[in-house]
C-alpha cells in the first residue's frame, strides 16, 4: 500500500494512457468489422489484454482499409 501511494503520480497517467489506447482500438474493432486478417473474436482480446503492443499491431497490420 505504501508503495502504491508513493507511485500514484506514475501509475495514474500510465493506466489512463494504456486504457485510452485499448479502448480506442476496441471501439475500432467493433465498428469496423473488416480486417486484413483475423476476426472480431481474435482482435478483441488482442487489443484489450496485450498492453501497448496489441493495439499497435491491430492498427498497423489488422485494420481494414475501409474508412
Amino acid at each position: 500500500m505504501e508503495t502504491l501511494r508513493e507511485y500514484w503520480p506514475f501509475l495514474v497517467p500510465l493506466i489512463i494512457a494504456q486504457l485510452t489506447l485499448a479502448i480506442t482500438a476496441f471501439v475500432h474493432v467493433i465498428r469496423h468489422p473488416s480486417y486484413r486478417f483475423g476476426n472480431k473474436v481474435f482482435w478483441i482480446p488482442v487489443v484489450l489484454f496485450i498492453s501497448i503492443i496489441g493495439p499497435v499491431v491491430y492498427f498497423v497490420f489488422g485494420r481494414g482499409d475501409a474508412e
Binding site: 507511485y7 506514475f10 497517467p13 494512457a17 485510452t20 501497448i52 499497435v56 492498427f59
Partner: peptide, 22 residues
C-alpha cells in the same frame, strides 16, 4: 490523424516517457 498514427505514436511515447524513470 484519421489512420490513428498520431494517437498511436503519442500514447506509446507517453507511456515510454513515464516508464523510464519508474
Amino acid at each position: 490523424v484519421k489512420t490513428y498514427k498520431l494517437l498511436l505514436l503519442g500514447i506509446v511515447f507517453l507511456i515510454l516517457g513515464i516508464m523510464n524513470p519508474l
